[in-house]
Structure formats: C-alpha cells, structure tokens
Design a protein around this nucleic acid. Sequence first.
DNA 1: CTGAAAGCGCTTACAG
DNA 2: CTGAAAGCGCTTACAG
Lengths: 348, 348
Amino acid sequence: MAVRMRDVAQAAGVSIAAVSLALSGNPRIPAETRDRIRAVAEQMGYRPHAGARALRTEVTGSLGLVISDVANPFFAELAGEIQRAAAAEGFSTVLCNSDEDAGVQDEYLRNLLAGSRVDGVILVPAAAMTEGLLAAGKAKARLVFLDRPVEVRGRTAAARHLAGSPVVRSGASKALSEAAELLTGFGHRRVGIIAPPMTTRVGVERTELMIQSLTARGVATRDISVVEGDFRQDSGERAMEQLLANKSRPTAIFGADGLMTIGAMKGLRAARYRVPADISVIGFDDAPWFDLFDPPLTAVAQPITAMATAAVRAMVHLVDDAAAPLPAADATPACRLVRRASCGPAPA
Amino acid sequence: MAVRMRDVAQAAGVSIAAVSLALSGNPRIPAETRDRIRAVAEQMGYRPHAGARALRTEVTGSLGLVISDVANPFFAELAGEIQRAAAAEGFSTVLCNSDEDAGVQDEYLRNLLAGSRVDGVILVPAAAMTEGLLAAGKAKARLVFLDRPVEVRGRTAAARHLAGSPVVRSGASKALSEAAELLTGFGHRRVGIIAPPMTTRVGVERTELMIQSLTARGVATRDISVVEGDFRQDSGERAMEQLLANKSRPTAIFGADGLMTIGAMKGLRAARYRVPADISVIGFDDAPWFDLFDPPLTAVAQPITAMATAAVRAMVHLVDDAAAPLPAADATPACRLVRRASCGPAPA
DNA sequence: CTGAAAGCGCTTACAG
DNA sequence: CTGAAAGCGCTTACAG
C-alpha cells in the first residue's frame, strides 16, 4: 500500500541498506548517491514505517501528553503550544485526557509507556502520587511534570527517578504579591480563596502564597476563608455560594484556577452581587475573551508558550541523553497579573 | 526495559505463541490456561509493543486528528471529545495543529499516513482540496472529514475515494433560520455577516444559509454586507471595523465563527457601540462563559459531542471494514440557537 | 491440539 | 568500500 524502503531501493537501483544509510546521512554513502536516493524517496512520498523503526531503534518519535481536560482553555492553549513545539523537534504528540482521575491517568501512562507508543510523557499529574507513576519510575520512563510537581517519598530507585524528572510550571509568587497588593490597596480586609484540590501541590502552593502575600500586608489570617474546589466550573460556583453564606462575607475573591473562577462569577451573578462594587474578583489563567466579561476580569496569566517550550525541550533532552544522568532541567517561567476592571475599592 | 511477551511466556511457563493467542482470546487456548496467562500478563504490567504489533498486523490502534488550532475553544472541546470517544474504542489520538495552513496539513497527513503512524485521520481540512489530500486518496487512506467537506473534482480513483469518505459536520440550517427570525422579529433590516474564508465550504454555506434565511424574511440582498475573515480573532475585529465604516451601517451582526465573533465584540467595544442597544450580535460556536460576557452572547451552538462520537464511529467503521465498500456514514447533527441578551430591537 | 518458524519494515554489525 | 543477514516483538499459517 504505502511506499516502503524496498520500493525506493528498487526505483533507485540500490540495496535497501543503501537507502537506509542515505536517508540517515551516513557518510558511507557518497554525497552524490545519497542525494539521488533522497530525491527518489522524496519523489515517491516515502516515509519510514514508524512501527518498524520503533521496533528496531527503540525510539518512536512520539511523546505522550496527559492533561486533565483539553476543553479547559488553559490546557487547550498549552496542548497546542506543546504540539507545535514537539513537531518542530520532529515529535508527534499523543493526546490523553485524564479528567483529573488518577486511575485514568495511570491507565494512559501504562498504555503509552509499557506499550512503547511514545518515548516519554509530559504529564499534568492528577494526584500527588499514584501506582502508575511509581511503575513508570521503576521502569525509568522519561517523564516531564507539567504545571504540578509530584510528592516523592522514600529512596527507592523508582522514587529517585521520579524525583529527578524535570518539573515545568509557572512561578506565581510575584504575580500573587501584586494581586494581594492590588486588593489590600483597595482596602480589602476579608478575602475568600477558591482553591484547587489540596491533594495537588498547585492547590496548596497557590493558596499558601496568596495567604502569605495577604497577611504580609496586614490581612488577619482569620479573615481569609478558603474553600476547596475540584478544578471544574461547577465547583467554583458552589464554592462561591459557600463563601457568600459566611457570617463575615469576603469583599474580595481570589479564584485560583480558570474554570473555577468562571463558576465563581456565575455564582456572583446568580446571587445578584455586583462586581466590583460589592465584591472584587481576581482569577487565575488568562484568556483573550476576559476583556469581554462583565466586568472585564483581572487575572493572573501563566506563561503558556514558555511552559510548553520548556517542557518539550526537557523531554527532547531526556530522549537525546538517555544514558546521561538526569539533568536538573526544571523551569519556572513567571506569571504576570493582567489588570482589568473586576477589582475596585472595598465596600464601606 | 519494558515487559515483553517472552517475559510473560517465561513467567507463565508457556510458549510466546500461547501468550499471544491467550491475550487475543483465541479459542485454541483452554479457558483456564487463557485466564492464568492473562492474570500473569496483567500482574506484570504487560502491554504489547505497539510498533511490533503495527508491523505485523498493519493496524496501529491510533488515529490522527488534524485540526486548525486546539486553542480555539470549539476545536478544543471537539478534540477532547474525540480523544475520549477514541479511547473508549481502544484508539490513541495523535494531535496535529494545521494552523489553517494547507502545506502544514499535508505534511502532517503524509507523516501520519505514509509513516503508518495511524490507521486513519479525522481531518478538519484547511482548504477545499490539496495535493496531500489527493495523495491520501490515491493511497486509499482512511479519512473522515470533520466540520468541513472537501471539493472533489474528477473521476480518478483518488477522487472517488475522497468523495466516498465520510463527512461529519453540524447542520446549521434550522438554527440559522431561528437566528434570522430573531433578528427580523426585532426589526433588523441591515445585517452584517462576518464570514469564514470563502475557500472553505463552511464559509460559503453558513453565509448563504444566513442570506437565504434573511431574504426569505424580507431583508433586501443589498442590505446584507459580507466581510470575510480568516477564523482568527483579529480578523473578526478588522471585519467589524469595516462593517461599521459602511455608509449604511448594519444594525445586526452575524459572526459566523467563534473567535471571529469575539474579535467583533472587541471591535464594537473599541468603537464604543453598545450591544444590543446600538447593534445586535449573534455568534457561532457556544462556550460556557458566554453567559459572563457584557452582554451575554447569543450564539449558535454546535453539537460537539455528537460530532465527535460520529467522527470516531465512522473511523472505527472504516478500520473494521477495511475491505468492504465505503459506507455512506455521513452525519449531520443539528445546531441549536442559545438565546442570551446580545440581540434586541433595531435602533430607530 | 501444540510449538517452531516465518515474516512485517526497518537499522546496523559483520562478512566479503 | 559494499551487500547480505540478523534481529527488534509481535501474529499466524504451518508442520508435527
């Protein structure tokens, strides 16, 4: 059906081995012959059979991308940039949605890695640690953790491998300081935080960073209410209802994730609160259409392109230097605060 | 490194062939032995080497998904649903962003198909016809066209193969009639259409359907202005500027694509028009956050889950019945109009 | 009924 | 310097 190496060899009047060597640029083949063979291959639309090559070389030229949900705009943009960066490096991208389910994640990991479908996996972990991750660590699989680190315990070989795997995520501390500054500058003293699951490090870290930034500016710890969501829009709306039902209602909200912040805005609208007159809102994860919200939403933007590039680069590095010791390839490009109209003076 | 069939065979005390047969459920292996072998395989975390299997069976268990840009919310949702549906059928999904570039699309097609990386490609074509598509047609590649049909000319075998490939897209005619009814009911008589590229059939069809729906309700053809965009947000904003500069400015806008409608809203805001007091807007492609826009955006929602399911089902059908004649597996689930607040009475 | 053997399309060590 | 041959991990037709 498709053109195979033997077809090219026949058409060029050389052996199969000569075609292989010519295409890989082996100096054994004289430049003139090499160029002639390459021209024939190109003209015939030849592409090496990916499976055959993988079988022989143990390299697939594919990478797995396991994210929670590509319909989440943050991950959609990230996935797009990763696919582009991977293609630029000659890698195909196998996409998987874990739906924040550790079991689903582990099933994908096993299918991708144990099945030799990919050379490595860029993973947004659905939980701090899972059996599948330990298995991948034991098999010394190439892993790059994206957006969220994992929690490695113990000193087994598997644990050490996971601990040595690169982590790429955004650095939020400066942007969150600015956010806290913005809120306290407007006189807010009671703040609600809609937090990602505390089983994820982003959940813990974003929450703690925001609490620190606020208390450093004189907000009392007891005036900070934290409600945990599950990254989904609905959970943001429910968290908002809960915060509004507090005896001492917050005057400002930090939504520590994109979709949950959208849910929170819906909750505010449903309860007929005005933003920012009654309550100020700062979200996490920016989108081009936040400009069009009522009011335009102030949000912390993650450096998506930089994250994608760093993750792909880290993976390519792992693939190229399979034998070399793992490098400390962590990358943490900084977030920035995008100021719009959803923050204003605290009500009297 | 990873567990191979021979390891399972050794652990279970049987031949490699027995393992293969047991895992595929061949009745030659007694049920008891089969279950024992399967248990050993499961326990060892065995997954067949995808490349080796592909080499032997000519089936990869992967499908390619070539879309224009996964960061576009419509395609992001579609990609997510396709990945999920594919996984449920046992297929991996290889994601590619063509960026609406026919050359990039063709390169991906060739890489995926000629390289035997996938069993078939679900494709949102970047152009009405391309060399790569013809090559894929000539090779009798399994193709499912998504969102946009292609224009097949001639009666060559390649052309016939492409013409016989399933097309899955949404049916907009009823929803666009409702949209036209909504606008004319509000007294609008001058309508601007921000259209996708006329090189794509969606561009031509959505535009023509809307024009027909409007003229059928008494709007004069000369009062309908069409400005062509390129699916990108910026082009929507520029199109909006152009429409506002018209001598006879439209009082209602139909944005025939998601991102372009967002651009149009930005253009209106920049020019300080009020929606819907000065101009009404209907968009295409719905998103959960349109509720939060100022004003909440009325839009035509595509049946994304139904489209994804139909596309994957069509592909699975092509894979299963490789030898059978191509079925007429086209699917056209209907769009629906989601009414919000961006449409109102035409200004006097 | 079972096991050994061939062969899918590549790459590369090896013999000539 | 060149070509034939081995072998990656599977599946399945075939011999015993």
